[in-house]
Design a protein around this nucleic acid. Structure first.
Length: 286
DNA sequence: GCCCAGGGAATCG
DNA sequence: CGATTCCATGGG
């Protein structure tokens, strides 16, 4: 892998396992827009970033070398060698098949607060609606950056009222967002300093928030707290796992979760993302 | 009007 | 505790 700055852009070459469409469209993040094929805009870290992928190269702009090294390298998880991780799954024919549908998926390292709120909103909701609600909240409470709005800081969103949140179309999840803010502001939970916590300790912490159960906590753990050993089980994963590993038989989420931990191990979260993408692609159960 | 969405809380045995 | 029941909103 190589990256260098050229006239306000950073060009990434000699990489593997990077497909901007697969990375953004696989349901892990909500602040992006498609401009054209393999050309996207991402809003994260109070910045607007354009990503255009061509044969053998990815162009990030506007972007300095410093920003790339300090922010986007980590955001796109470029320190992780996905070709090595995929080798861990090479003996599982089912997973190999799922991976073949999106070789270029990577798990983004998103900002914890935004990711947590986004997945609180995801409860009983659809991906296009989640994107819309997160956008509404950003436009109402966040700072303007170019022609978009950054996701609000904790301080900014703490000014929100139940009525305002409902105007942003959060629906009944308004009280969950308010509870999240209360618990952060009263230091009942701390999402800033989590490095020393085990995955279970951090999960218990997150689940103190009303509206955060196993699934929402797992998504936050995987997508923003760098815990690649968690395997979020939602309706799609449940269906695809039942079909691929349980002979199409109805299986409880807890059983699927434990099965995944044992089968996929330390990097089960990566496996989950390939399987989720496969489930959506095949429209399993629909 | 009806159904369901990347679930969770409350309640019950 | 594990299992069942109830909850609640917007969009198609």
């Amino acid at each position: 892998m190589k990256f260098e700055e050229n006239q306000g852009k950073v060009i990434l070459t000699n990489f593997n396992s990077f497909n901007i469409e697969e990375i953004l469209e696989c349901g892990q993040c909500f602040r992006f827009n498609k401009i054209e094929n393999m050309h996207y805009k991402v809003i994260a870290h109070r910045r607007e970033l354009f990503i255009k992928q061509e044969e053998g190269k990815v162009i990030f702009s506007p972007c300095t070398l410093e920003e790339f090294e300090n922010i986007w390298f980590n955001y796109f998880d470029l320190g992780t060698d996905y070709s090595e991780l995929k080798k861990l799954f090479k003996d599982d024919n089912v997973l190999v098949e799922a991976i073949s549908f999106a070789e270029g998926i990577r798990i983004l390292n998103q900002e914890p607060f935004e990711c947590l709120i986004s997945f609180i909103i995801s409860q009983n909701n659809r991906i296009p609606m989640i994107k819309q609600v997160v956008k509404n909240i950003s436009e109402k409470y966040g700072d303007k950056i170019n022609d978009e709005y950054a996701f609000p800081t904790i301080e900014q969103l703490s000014k929100a009222t139940s009525e305002e949140l409902r105007e942003c179309k959060t629906g009944f999840r308004d009280k969950y967002i308010l509870d999240c803010l209360e618990k952060i502001n009263s230091n009942e939970i701390d999402i800033e300093n989590t490095y020393d916590l085990t995955t279970k300790e951090l999960k218990d912490e997150l689940m103190k928030i009303k509206g955060v159960g196993t699934k929402v906590a797992d998504c936050a753990l995987l997508f923003s707290f760098k815990r690649k050993d968690v395997f979020p089980v939602d309706v799609w994963i449940k269906r695809v796992m039942e079909q691929l590993y349980f002979n199409g038989e109805e299986t409880k989420k807890e059983v699927i979760s434990q099965f995944a931990d044992e089968k996929f191990g330390k990097y089960s979260g990566i496996a989950q993302q390939y399987l989720f993408n496969y489930a959506i692609y095949k429209k399993i159960g629909k």
